[in-house]
């Protein structure tokens, strides 16, 4: 366990360092930045802009800027927004809660829906419940969020007045955006669930279980599901990462605050310290989620645990 934690911590640090370094380099390679743009828009002269950039340390040589960035990063300081001069930590902190709410609600819906659709399709195909599950699954894979989102607002909010479409005041406000985002993510989970389930169904131990006289439901829930879970866990871990991408559009369409909006604006406005901050956050998130997934793999599959320990 100790070794596992130590290794994980190391890979996490490596990921954060690698991602932020890559992002740092890419962002410095890109032409332009937020300060210059905003000041030009205000009518500043090139000399004024250069002075301002120098004051912010942007005219120093790249290696010096990089070392400065790394030292700050080690102290947990992500720097200041070019545009608002606020600490990036604070900017991210303000938006994190809303995105965690949206993403976890969406993930919850996606897991339930994905597992259900995947199981129904695996077990009932080609009968009608399987067919319906299959059709929903394809729709989840095929419909872009901007379409399902707008359609959901139109149907549930504008036409039926059932649910609020925009804002973030209460859990009810979460239902539509989390449902749309969750439906989108459920498609991948359902597919992997079905694939994995069917693979395990064919395993000899299922026959053994039948031979021992266990009922289908017992076998399904106590043996098959458990054994088919590792790839499902992997895809769930992966999707957690992809949720960030999904939140960009979901937050925009449903008028919600969050990391997605922060990132989108920072990218378009070229507010690079903020972009870097979000990359660092994403790297930490991935590492944590993958650590959890690996722990999960170990718990579910004793063979893996043995292999690790030996």
């Amino acid at each position: 366990m100790w070794r596992f934690m130590r290794d994980r911590l190391l890979t996490t640090l490596l990921t954060v360092w690698g991602a932020s370094t890559l992002a740092f380099l890419v962002l410095r390679l890109l032409p332009g930045d937020a300060i210059t743009n905003q000041m030009l828009q205000g009518g500043a002269s090139p000399a004024t802009i250069a002075a301002r950039r120098a004051a912010m340390g942007l005219e120093s040589p790249l290696p010096i800027q990089y070392v400065r960035f790394l030292l700050d990063l080690i102290r947990g300081d992500l720097g200041y927004s070019y545009l608002t001069q606020q600490p990036v930590n604070a900017l991210i902190g303000e938006q994190l809660g809303a995105t965690i709410s949206l993403a976890s609600a969406a993930l919850f819906i996606a897991i339930i829906l994905g597992l259900a659709l995947g199981m129904i399709e695996a077990l009932y195909w080609p009968r009608w419940p399987g067919q319906i599950a299959s059709a929903l699954n394809v729709l989840a894979l095929a419909a872009p969020i901007y379409w399902t989102g707008t359609l959901a607002i139109y149907v549930f909010s504008t036409q039926l007045s059932l649910l609020p479409a925009t804002g973030s005041g209460s859990p009810i406000h979460l239902l539509l955006p989390a449902g749309v985002l969750g439906f989108h993510v459920a498609g991948s989970i359902a597919r992997v669930t079905r694939t994995s389930l069917r693979r395990i169904q064919e395993a000899p131990f299922v026959r053994t279980a039948y031979a021992k006289g266990l009922r289908s439901s017992q076998i399904l829930f106590s043996h098959v599901l458990r054994a088919s879970f590792p790839p499902i866990l992997s895809i769930i871990a992966l999707q957690t990462g992809f949720l960030l991408g999904g939140t960009v559009i979901t937050e925009m369409i449903f008028v919600r605050q969050g990391i997605g909006q922060l990132l989108q604006h920072a990218v378009i406005d070229q507010d690079y310290p903020v972009v870097l901050g979000v990359v660092v956050l994403a790297a930490i998130t991935y590492s944590v989620v993958n650590t959890l997934a690996d722990i999960g793999h170990g718990l579910l599959d004793p063979r893996l645990r043995l292999a690790e320990e030996s």
Partner: peptide, 19 residues
């Protein structure tokens, strides 16, 4: 004041009375 950046959402939210 809230931020309706997506144009189709503006009209839908105006009709549903959310804005």
């Amino acid at each position: 004041f809230r931020f309706f950046e997506d144009p189709p959402t503006r009209t839908l939210a105006l009709e549903s009375g959310e804005v």
